[in-house]
């Protein structure tokens, strides 16, 4: 199963939510697309690995060398030592776990490595103006790149969107100012929210529009839209659009309106009749 598209169409936060909620396993590759903005550094490919919806590793290359180089750069173990260990012990578990089991790394060092490999670079990806993504569910997990730790995409997405300065690519994806938001989880949110997110969270399910929340909290409406988008991407809330009171810009032709009688139950004979009527049409086409 391969899923592809542009980040401008299906944003990284939405991809993360999809992969987490679908408990997907595989490789998400992101190829940045050159935009008009000046970029001095060459644009690197990104590969993010998911196991049952959780992020387990991230790399720039598919050469299985990333984690070993990181371990050496940190001064924990030389690559040659890792190679010697790998000759003695087969890599049938994440490399980080194997090295920990052999006493070569401790838990704190693994956490530092995971932070440097996953938690720091991925949030920066949310600032990409454009990119081509592909999720390959058949890509095997690279044990050599895995520390054995994992992170919920929800938390990584929240961190990334909090860092975001230029929201231009996401403007058309934000919830509308006259919408309300409802909670998708019972009780407290299952992840850490910052103080302003908490203040907005207090208004979830209270039939207050985003504009109303902005007024109540004395925040710009756009700021509340961004916060609600973060909560939506984290899978915490759902937007409920309201009926717009603004008239349509075009003046439509007068149309047949639904008859005034109520939409009460339909009789069994009606339902049987309509099914009998449609069946030959369906068979003719099939």
């Amino acid at each position: 199963m391969k899923i592809t598209g542009y980040l401008s169409e299906f944003s990284l936060g939405e991809i993360f939510r999809f992969l987490e909620q679908g408990q997907k396993t595989g490789c998400l590759s992101i190829k940045p697309v050159e935009t008009e903005t000046l970029s001095i550094a060459p644009l690197k490919h990104h590969y993010i690995f998911f196991r049952l919806g959780q992020i387990v590793a991230a790399t720039h290359e598919l050469d299985h060398q990333g984690l070993q180089q990181l371990i050496e750069q940190r001064g924990f173990i030389h690559v040659t030592t890792i190679h010697r260990l790998l000759k003695l012990y087969p890599l049938n578990q994440p490399l980080g776990l194997l090295l920990k089991t052999q006493g070569a790394l401790d838990s704190q060092q693994l956490q530092l490595l995971f932070k440097q490999q996953v938690l720091t670079p991925i949030p920066e990806l949310f600032s990409l103006a454009e990119g081509w993504f592909k999720f390959d569910a058949n890509h095997p997990l690279p044990l050599a790149e895995m520390t054995g730790l994992s992170a919920p995409p929800r938390d990584v997405a929240l961190a990334g969107l909090r860092l975001l300065r230029d929201w231009t690519p996401l403007m058309d994806k934000l919830p509308l100012p006259d919408s309300t938001v409802i909670s998708l989880s019972e009780g407290q949110p299952p992840c850490h929210l910052n103080s302003v997110e908490w203040r907005v969270w207090e208004y979830v399910d209270k039939t207050v529009t985003l504009e109303g929340i902005a007024q109540a909290l004395n925040l710009p409406v756009l700021e509340v839209q961004k916060i609600c988008f973060r909560l939506m991407v984290a899978g915490l809330v759902e937007e409920i659009p309201n009926i717009s009171i603004e008239p349509s810009p075009s003046s439509p032709t007068p149309l047949p309106q639904p008859a005034e009688e109520s939409s009460g139950s339909l009789s069994q004979s009606f339902l049987m009749g309509v099914l009998s009527f449609l069946k030959p049409k369906a068979m003719k086409g099939g």
Binding site: L275, L278, K279, K281, A282, M283, K284, G285, G286
Partner: peptide, 10 residues
């Protein structure tokens, strides 16, 4: 396709 639409309606 009318057949496909009819099947969806059914």
């Amino acid at each position: 396709d009318q057949g496909s639409v009819a099947a969806a309606m059914m």
